[in-house]
Write a protein that binds this DNA or RNA. Sequence first.
DNA 1: TAGATTGTTAATCGATTAACAATC
DNA 2: TAGATTGTTAATCGATTAACAATC
Lengths: 216, 216
Amino acid sequence: MKYRISANVIKRLPRYIRTLDSLQRDGTEKISSSDLSGRLGLTASQIRQDFNCFGGFGHQGYGYNVAQLKKGIRDVLGVEELLTAALVGAGNLGRALMANFNFSECGVKLMAAFDTNPEKIGCFVGGVEIMDAAELPRFLKDSAPDIIILTLPKDYADEMVALAEKFNVRGIWNFTGTDIESGLQVVEDVHLSDSLLTLGYYLRSSQNDDRERKLR
Amino acid sequence: MKYRISANVIKRLPRYIRTLDSLQRDGTEKISSSDLSGRLGLTASQIRQDFNCFGGFGHQGYGYNVAQLKKGIRDVLGVEELLTAALVGAGNLGRALMANFNFSECGVKLMAAFDTNPEKIGCFVGGVEIMDAAELPRFLKDSAPDIIILTLPKDYADEMVALAEKFNVRGIWNFTGTDIESGLQVVEDVHLSDSLLTLGYYLRSSQNDDRERKLR
DNA sequence: TAGATTGTTAATCGATTAACAATC
DNA sequence: TAGATTGTTAATCGATTAACAATC
């Protein structure tokens, strides 16, 4: 495996896996970089470069074996090396993740969820128990999850980051909408507003393009 | 305004806005590119380049006026130009958005939600009514929203894209987890699994770094 | 005025694309 | 063998960084 895989490449890997998944479902056994190019809107050259960051999975004159390539990429991401997670905040968003999100597909096991609402405590969603938030510190100490998932209101974000730090939880999947600064931890901020703002930008500018086109 | 603002710059704009928001809350009136640099982990040079893609909001020897800069960036994104949206699928995720997501902050008005579940139809969440999914075509025709938000199971994604196309809905905010291919529409795919996979990658590789460090 | 900080040009760096020899 | 397609090197392109004159 090469020295440092650039962040750009890493971000493309999940998309490759999705495409390979769907090829596999269709029963396709092999695929060439130029076929993939068509499906993904990337150049064949870039795809080959990407795949070559981590060992040659291709066969010259043949292409790539779908199953083998997918396994290779999953290995780079380390999906087989299971990580554990605890979710904090079993509101709509938290329960949406518990009920519908495919954690195991991402190499993560969701062990428990936590909330302060007595009506929720003890309930199971998606096979995962909602426990009393008061139990969270003990849980972090005893079970030492790798990841804490923050699906609670943003006001609690800092407190949770401090707690995670205290119990040496290294990963934070942050849905609170704030940016978490932490040199010690690995943080993924999920900013849904970024996504909608970006959509809005391209939508508005394409509308303007349309208008301009009509004016010509 | 410059000709084409690169996608890289566009993706940084929401983050600038968030930072400026928090500065504003703290009562900070002016900020220099090097101060921002510290907060954002970008170089001052890059920040100045970014801001200069769309007119000079800065004042030499002084810095940037926070309110003015924020307004400038919001204008680039076009947030004041309100877009309308309809949400399809009022499950946990859909309701999470309805109840907690700040649409107006993104320049979007959520007009209605749709679901097939009779128990949900007629309910209001976050001030928005859940209507019968059977009414969706009529709604799209009569109200012509700019955006359709897909928070339903992925099996329905294609159907909804076709419907949107038919009624000329130009924007799709897609939470189904599939990649939507549509030359005609502006699509934002929200792939939560990409985010978790990326987190997992960096977490695993930082753990390996730790191990290596210990071995030395 | 002196100091600060922008706007902008030039230099560097990295990522993408093109080209082609290697080889299945 | 001939055709296809990879792996990889070289060329191009774009984005980031550095530098500094302009100017508040």
